[in-house]
Amino acid sequence: MRNLLYFLRKHYFIFLAVALEVISLVIFVQYNAFQNNALTRFSSTMSGSVLDISNDVSEYFSLRRANRILAEDNARLHSNRPEAFYRADTNMFYRKDTLYMLEYRYISAKVISNTTNKRNNFLLLNKGRKQGIQNNMGVIIGNRIVGQVISVSDHFSWVMSLLNKDSRISGKFKKNNQLVNIEWNGGNYRYGEVKEIPKHVQIWRGDTIITSGNSDIFPEGLLIGTVHEFTVAPEDNFNRAILTFSTDFNSLSYVEVIIDLMRQEKEEVKGTFNPSN
């Protein structure tokens, strides 16, 4: 027993080092497995309050750009209003009917922390559960995608940016609706990778890729990017391409969180039918 105590005292440094290392690794692994735990909530509340102050200062430097994006968005929305259309058929009239139901609602939120230089990037938003934000909601800017909410506290939320190794977006070519997957492989934040393009699909530089609407996170038709260059791999079953993201991740100041009003209904339907059985 005395020898054991002596041994422990003599080598306590190694034991302490190993213990702390194991604790860190457990936190690291646990955190990835269980999102939205107490630790994240503490982290987002604490860092939220500090980074909010720092953002109050840095916000002024991006106002010009934020204004331009908002103005563009306004113009797009104005051109979609009924008044913007010329009525060719004078017999047509509007009727309030039940054919249209509201499916998506959008909440504007301020980005108070954002990185693009790490392998896994996250954004911190200044809205949280009290404002109606929940896990797995999509985040966009205008009609371009940004990421998805992964954890919420009462007043803040962490968003997993598209620039993350766990991020995988289901997209399609706008011209022929061919489904593809979009990932980010690290490095430059402006370029992503399009995976699993079937061999028979003709690709050109500048082809637009939009969201497919297959996942419940993003509605169909949001811009992801345009093809920058592509490689034909003869030995592989699929072609690959590099795309330029439509979103400039380095200058995000205000984003919109998508609230899917029919999400519960969609999940219920999925729960009743399991294709694997």
Partner: peptide, 10 residues
């Protein structure tokens, strides 16, 4: 805590 990567820098 500030970069949402608990355990990594630690």
């Amino acid at each position: 805590m500030f970069t949402n990567t608990p355990g990594l820098n630690a």
